[in-house]
Design a protein around this nucleic acid. Structure first.
Length: 689
DNA sequence: GTTAGGG
DNA sequence: CCCTAAC
């Protein structure tokens, strides 16, 4: 197939024959629909999409790392093999056992590995481990070995070395908070622990084993549904718990924990409803359930509340969950456009999923609560940054600090007992990515007050080089617009029913695709120079390809994929975002047509004419799964427009004038043909009548 | 499922 | 690219 495609490509590029319009070989295009012009145009739907801005682009940092260049896979440390074996076979669901999840780094060939930190807003060096922890590495060249081993669940010596290395590096540098820019050395590590609240921490020298031992996640059953709470705290069974305060929450957890019963919340999804056996995997993301939510909304309006941020002076005082301390290297990007999601449907509200707006900052004392919470960590839904004191020179006007950890909202996963480990991993991955990719933004809390003015300088805010570290904090907040939401009832059923594969593209699920590794040999070349780009684009890194890949996986739940085979790039483009519009699919990413594609399109249209887009698609883009005939039609439309405007007005990758000329020529020709047909059509119609 | 157009 | 009327 490839060869044939290539042959065709060669034909396209090399042996392109100029068509002579008027040649009788042309096919007569279909007669245009006469009624089209008269058709009623419906009310223009106003897109509710709104872009949120993340001051520090943490989302990109984390999610990008999680799902980006390296790719990630959820691994259950305790159950490495037989991924597809039923959970029941592997896990005793009768009690709470220690188990963890590792989002381990995948070996990647991604070309981006060599990017410098400045180029990548992502966290560099992410090595992570332990249960419910995330390990990622951006500096693949060096960390790969380590990551690889880790993936295999081996605590190798390299780890120790690595830790040492990290220590050194961490010591040498720390996050620099300057001019609203967070920057750190490349060699920093971010650690994410899906603990109580799925904590993400950046530490150096984390101890994997430690993490494993101290933070057992729990797995309980309910009507044959296995509810897995990625929690290290003993309160795993409180998926959609209302959060009040970190400290209180911690205490409360213990009380409510007993029995591992589900919390009764207004959130239907939270699960007060009886679980149906064999129901597809359900996962709930309890990220922002605050009291307010509890009271109100069934309507699903966004809750406004900020996440607490905790500042730690001393790494040792940190949350008990905190395992290691690594600098959290991330750089602020200008603005982070968190995708847009309509936040309106009541669907989400049904689940109690509501986005929290930063306006409501529940806690004023970040430092106080932070320490208090150290015993139990933040309450579910609370995102916390633990800021560690970083060394700095008094004469340095730079503000330096180290974020030791932050948490992401609690994850709740419900999965049938007979689900496979593989599906469990996917579910967890999905949950994680939904949160991380769903629209987290960073809030800045200083001296107990939320700093909302992004334009303020640090100095103006009072954050100087000698500021009290306790006073500075960050919060992970669900994006008001696109905050990750618990899956709605409808969504739940859409969550990767592995047993019954279905096109994910139609699944309004959180757009979080669990990548378990797919053999994808090619990286997409968006420059358009890669001819294979569109000839084999079904292998490229696009959401569609992900879906496709996932479908394949779904179809074969037994597929055991080596983590090392995953095409890291395949994960890079997925905008894992959980939308409010749980019913609508996510907008596809923009994929500019390459010149080669344009060439193919032009040739096809020259041959087939306009109005036969399906044929055009089959003829020239049959292998480009991501190009629908509608896309081709649209492209042609824009091509015609482009060809008509002055070159100065054109944007994007320049299309050779020669091609544009052909576009105009072909368009003119086929338009004429259409006109002719229209002339004849009426009479024929009448004749028929 | 396609096509055509407006958004 | 999305959405959707009209086929």
């Amino acid at each position: 197939m490839v060869s044939s495609s290539l042959d065709y490509l060669v034909q396209l590029i090399i042996g392109v024959k100029r068509l002579h319009y008027g040649f009788n070989g042309y096919q007569v295009p279909p007669i245009p629909r006469a009624t089209r012009s008269a058709r009623r145009r419906g009310i223009i739907r106003r897109k509710t999409d709104g872009d949120g801005t993340c001051p520090f682009d943490l989302l990109a940092t984390v999610a990008g790392k999680l799902l980006g260049e390296q790719g990630a896979i959820v691994k259950n440390e305790k159950v490495k093999e037989d991924e597809d074996r039923s959970l029941k076979e592997k896990i005793d669901t009768e009690g709470c056992y220690e188990r963890g999840f590792i989002i381990s780094e995948l070996v990647s060939q991604a070309p981006v590995v060599n990017r410098s930190l400045s180029e990548l807003p992502h966290v560099q060096n992410d090595t992570i481990s332990g249960p419910a922890s995330v390990t990622m590495s951006s500096d693949c060249s060096e960390k790969f070995p380590f990551a690889k081993q880790f993936v295999n669940g081996e605590s190798s010596e390299e780890h120790g070395n690595f830790s040492s290395k990290m220590e050194r590096e961490a010591a040498s540098g720390c996050g620099v908070f300057s001019s609203c820019t967070l920057d750190t050395e490349n060699d920093k590590q971010i650690k994410m622990e899906l603990s109580n609240n799925a904590k993400v921490s950046t530490n150096k020298g984390s101890e994997f084993p430690d993490v494993l031992d101290k933070k057992p996640s729990t797995l309980v059953t309910s009507n044959e549904s296995v509810k897995l709470s990625l929690s290290t705290d003993p309160a795993p069974c409180r998926p959609l718990q209302v959060i009040r305060n970190d400290v209180k929450l911690a205490n409360k957890d213990d009380d409510e924990n007993s029995g591992c019963t589900q919390p009764s919340t207004p959130n239907k999804a939270s699960g007060s409803a009886p679980r149906v056996r064999d129901r597809p995997i359900k996962k709930l993301l309890a990220s922002k359930y605050w009291e307010e939510n509890l009271k109100s909304d069934d309507e699903g309006h966004a809750n406004s509340c900020g996440k607490t941020m905790h500042v730690y002076h001393n790494r040792n005082i940190g949350c008990k969950h905190q395992r290691s301390q690594r600098d959290f290297p991330f750089k602020k990007r200008k603005l982070f456009k968190c995708g847009s999601f309509s936040n309106s449907d009541g669907e989400m509200s049904t689940d109690g999923g509501n986005s929290s707006s930063p306006t409501n900052d529940l806690h004023g004392n970040s430092s106080g609560s932070s320490k208090a919470s150290s015993g139990g960590c933040a309450a579910p839904g609370t995102s916390v940054f633990n800021v560690g004191r970083a060394s700095f020179r008094p004469d340095d006007s730079r503000v330096k600090f180290r974020i030791k950890s932050f948490r992401v909202p609690e994850l709740f996963v419900e999965i049938p007992e007979n689900a496979t480990i593989g599906s469990l991993k996917r579910a967890v991955m999905e949950a994680v990515t939904a949160i991380l990719g769903g629209g987290i933004r960073i809030g800045v809390v200083f001296q107990g007050k939320k700093v909302r003015d992004d334009n303020k300088t640090l100095l103006q805010t009072g954050i100087s080089h000698d500021y009290k570290l306790d006073a500075l904090g960050f919060s992970l907040e669900p994006n008001p617009i696109q905050a990750p939401q618990p899956l709605g009832p409808d969504c739940r059923s859409c969550v990767l029913p592995y047993d019954t594969p279905r096109p994910l593209t139609r699944c309004p699920s959180p757009a979080t695709v669990v990548h378990t590794g797919i053999q994808q040999g090619r990286s997409d070349d968006h420059t358009g120079t890669n001819l294979n780009n569109f000839l084999e684009s079904d292998h490229d890194s696009t959401p569609s390809s992900h879906y496709t890949a996932l479908e394949k996986i779904s179809a074969n739940s037994r597929a055991l994929v080596p983590v090392t085979t995953v095409n890291a790039e395949a994960l890079s483009v997925v905008p894992l975002r959980k939308t409010k519009r749980s019913e609508s699919t996510q907008r596809r990413i923009r994929r500019p047509f390459s010149v080669a594609e344009v060439e193919a399109l032009v040739q096809a249209v020259e041959k087939l004419g306009t109005g036969r887009w399906r044929d055009v698609k089959l003829r020239a883009f049959d292998n480009a799964k991501h190009r629908t005939y509608v896309d081709l039609k649209d492209k042609w439309k824009t091509l015609v427009h482009t060809a008509r405007i002055s070159p100065q007005q054109r944007r994007g990758e320049p299309v050779p004038q020669e091609l544009l000329d052909r576009v105009l020529t072909a368009h003119a020709y086929w338009s004429q043909q259409q006109a002719k047909q229209q002339m004849k059509q009426p009479s024929e119609t009448y004749l028929l009548l």
